[in-house]
Design a protein around this nucleic acid. Sequence first.
DNA 1: GCAAGCA
DNA 2: TGCTTGCAACGCCAA
DNA 3: TTGGCG
Length: 397
Amino acid sequence: MSAAKDEVLEVAGRAVTISNPDKVFFPKSGHTKLDLVRYYLAVAEGALRGVGGRPMALKRFVNGAEGEAFFQKRAPTSRPEWIETVELSFPSGRTAEEIVVRDAAQLAWIINLGCIDLNPHPVRAGDLDHPDELRVDLDPVPGVSWAQIRDVAMVTRDVLKDFGLVGWPKTSGSRGMHIYCRIEPRWTFPEVRRAAVALAREVERRAPQIATSRWWKEERHGVFLDYNQNAKDRTVASAYSVRPLDDARVSTPLMWDEVPTCEAEAFTLATVPRRFAEIGDPSKGIDEAVGSLEALLELSAQHEAAGFGDAPWPPHFAKQTGEPSRVQLSRRKREDRPATPKGAVPPPAPGKTVGPTGRRRTTMPLIEIARAASETEARAGLQRWRARHAEVWSHLA
DNA sequence: GCAAGCA
DNA sequence: TGCTTGCAACGCCAA
DNA sequence: TTGGCG
Ligand SMILES: [Mn+2]
Ligand SMILES: [Mn+2]
């Protein structure tokens, strides 16, 4: 830190004071607090598409990315009059005035508070009980390859399409990926979460080697589709958020044709502004692709009828009606443990694996190379196969 | 990161 | 004036 | 009281 002087920026017609502008926020890559503010202003159009009009929890790193962080839901009482808030209510009856950002000045102001990533709720301030965003949070268990995450993302895209939704992918900037769907604000939080449970189970059904819908860590393998991130009061780091990691990695929206080859480490505070200037925001159309949860909720009803009801909720939530016992297998009372482990995923609706002749079709993906006429034809065929069976490609040793 | 309280 | 201090989320369930 | 999970 050289001169401990405030920096006053003119942003969206307002004066925003940045304290400690030269403070190093990312020691390993050298970026300062002012670098972080400048980054957010460079990608403000995209960042605001992610957080605009939404109440948000503040995660504050007042001593930089390597310092200890704390959460803050209630807006600081000392704030400019142009900082908007909205009152949220919790099940306990307590309330919180959370910040709502709509423009670049408000964005710069919260970055000055020491926020590195942005964590908005999936609702707009005008309707706090009806999310307009279904969030698919892909969380790899430790050791899972990036290739597997990409493949689960592609399978998720197919499932969403089959159920009438358009997915918008981004790296999380941490270890996984996020896929968001804009939805009509017609469903409550518990309903949106149940749609996410059904989606997670369907992705696992299609790609059982690399995807899991299981809440308990000891029962997971591959990539976990974290349906509970759609519960009320849960937030997710938004598009263009910088993550508090050494290289200042960014949660970066992607075009779907980038997903099969993207590398998360390519997107940082240092590289994303250029990308944004050159190609703009791949998620620009998200607000125009409004979908319905009806099909996923119908799938959920089928699961329920097949004996697969609700899935465990996170800690700190009251027990929900219909929720299974909130305990992992290894801690369950002996007499409550199933003799044969119950799968996480119900079978498909009938009539899907049997062809018109009644002869059973092959259910497992099968590669045939020996029949190809030439090597190039064989290679081309292999690529087509890969595109159609993303669910197992990354799993091949 | 900031404001209040204290020397 | 300058330094220190307190404060900044959600808060349940099962064994 | 401990450990579950973001
Ligand atoms: Mn995640
Ligand atoms: Mn998660």
